[in-house]
C-alpha cells in the first residue's frame, strides 16, 4: 500500500490545469507574433486586470457549478451590470464608506442569489431557466432605477482598484489572486468546502449522510450572487464609467472559464485555480481577437464555438448502450 506524494503535486491536478496553461502560453506566443506591443508590461498588466474581474465572475460561477443539480448561474452578468451601475451611487468618500459600499453591493447580489436558490431548490425550477429569468428581472430593475442614465461620477477610492502596486500587478489583480487561493483552500480543506463538493457529486448520498443539501445548495447561489455583486463594482472601478448592460458578456465567459478549468458540469468536481487559469485564457484570446480587429459578432462566434468544443470534450452525457 504505497502512499502517494503530497496533495498539491497530485497528477490529477496537473492534468486539469495543463490545458489552460498550455493554451495561455500558446496564445501569448501568437499575440507576440501578431503585435510587437503584445508582451509589454502595460499590455500584460491590463490583461491581468481584465482577467481579475473575470476571475471573480468565474469563482461565482464555479461555486454554483460545483454545487450540482445541473447548477448554473446565468444571472452573473446581469448582477454585475446592476452593481456596476448602481454601486457608484453609494457614497464612498472614506475607506469606511468604501467598505460599507462593498458590503452593500454584495448584499444586493446575495439577495438575487437567494431568490435564485429558493426558486431552484424549493420549487424545482431548473437553474438554467431560473437564473436566466432572474437575469431579465435584474436587468429590468437596473434599467428602472437608473432610468437609463447611469452614474457619472466615481469615487477615487473605487477608481483606486486599478492602481498599480508593482509592475503588471494592480490592486485588484492581487485581490483576485488572494481570493482564488483562499477559496481553493476552503474548498479542499475545510468541512464546508468539502460538503459543497459532496453535495454536488451525489446529493442523495450526501443527504443520507446527514449533510444539509438544501441549505448548501441555496448558499451556493447566495455566494455566487454576492461575489458577482462585488465583481460588478470592481468592473466599474476599472473601466471608470458605467454603460447599460456592460457586464452581460461575463456570463458566458465565466461558464467557459470554469469548464476549461476542469469543473464538471454535473457537479462535484471543480477548481477555483483552474477557473482563474481559464479566465486568463479567454481574456488573452479576446485580446488577440481585438488586436486582429475582429468585429464583435465574430468574437461571439469564436467564443461560442470554443465553448462547444470544450463541452464536447469534457462533459458528454452517458452512452445509452453499455
Amino acid at each position: 500500500m504505497a502512499n502517494k506524494p503530497r496533495r498539491t503535486l497530485n497528477l490529477d491536478n496537473i492534468r486539469i490545469f495543463l490545458p489552460s496553461v498550455l493554451a495561455v502560453i500558446a496564445l501569448l506566443v501568437l499575440g507576440r507574433y501578431l503585435s510587437g506591443r503584445f508582451l509589454t508590461v502595460k499590455n500584460l498588466g491590463s490583461i491581468l486586470m481584465t482577467s481579475s474581474i473575470l476571475m471573480f465572475a468565474t469563482v461565482a460561477q464555479n461555486i454554483v457549478l460545483i454545487s450540482g443539480n445541473n447548477g448554473i448561474d446565468l444571472s452573473v452578468g446581469a448582477v454585475m451590470s446592476m452593481t456596476a451601475l448602481l454601486g457608484p451611487t453609494i457614497p464612498m468618500a472614506t475607506v469606511g464608506e468604501f467598505a460599507l459600499a462593498i458590503v452593500a453591493v454584495m448584499g444586493m447580489g446575495a439577495a438575487c442569489g437567494l431568490i435564485n436558490g429558493a426558486g431552484i431548490r424549493q420549487l424545482g425550477i431548473p437553474a438554467l431557466i431560473m437564473t436566466l429569468i432572474m437575469a431579465g428581472v435584474v436587468t429590468g430593475f437596473t434599467m428602472y432605477v437608473t432610468k437609463g442614465r447611469p452614474a457619472i461620477e466615481l469615487s477615487p477610492l473605487l477608481l483606486g482598484v486599478s492602481k498599480t502596486v508593482f509592475p503588471m500587478f494592480r490592486v485588484l489583480t492581487l485581490a483576485a489572486i488572494a481570493a482564488v487561493a483562499a477559496l481553493e483552500i476552503i474548498l479542499r480543506k475545510t468541512r464546508i468546502g468539502r460538503s459543497l463538493t459532496l453535495v454536488g457529486d451525489n446529493p442523495r448520498a450526501a443527504e443520507l449522510c446527514g449533510l444539509r443539501v438544501s441549505l448548501i445548495s441555496v448558499l451556493a447561489y447566495v455566494s455566487s450572487g454576492a461575489i458577482a455583486g462585488f465583481a460588478g463594482l470592481m468592473l466599474v472601478g476599472y473601466t471608470g464609467s458605467a454603460v447599460m448592460k456592460m457586464a452581460d458578456g461575463y456570463t458566458l465567459l465565466s461558464v467557459a472559464a470554469a469548464i476549461i478549468g476542469g469543473t464538471s458540469v454535473s457537479g462535484g468536481r471543480g477548481s477555483f485555480i483552474g477557473g482563474a487559469l481559464g479566465a486568463i485564457v479567454f481574456v488573452v484570446l479576446n485580446s488577440i481577437l481585438q488586436v486582429l480587429r475582429i468585429p464583435e459578432g465574430a468574437r461571439y462566434v469564436i467564443q461560442g464555438c470554443l465553448l462547444v468544443v470544450i463541452l464536447l470534450t469534457n462533459n458528454r452525457s452517458q452512452k445509452l448502450r453499455q
Binding site: T197, L198, D201, N202, A205, L208, G268
Partner: peptide, 9 residues
C-alpha cells in the same frame, strides 16, 4: 451508485 458513492471523490 445512487446512495453511497461519491464518484468524483
Amino acid at each position: 451508485q445512487t446512495e453511497g458513492v461519491f464518484k468524483e471523490h
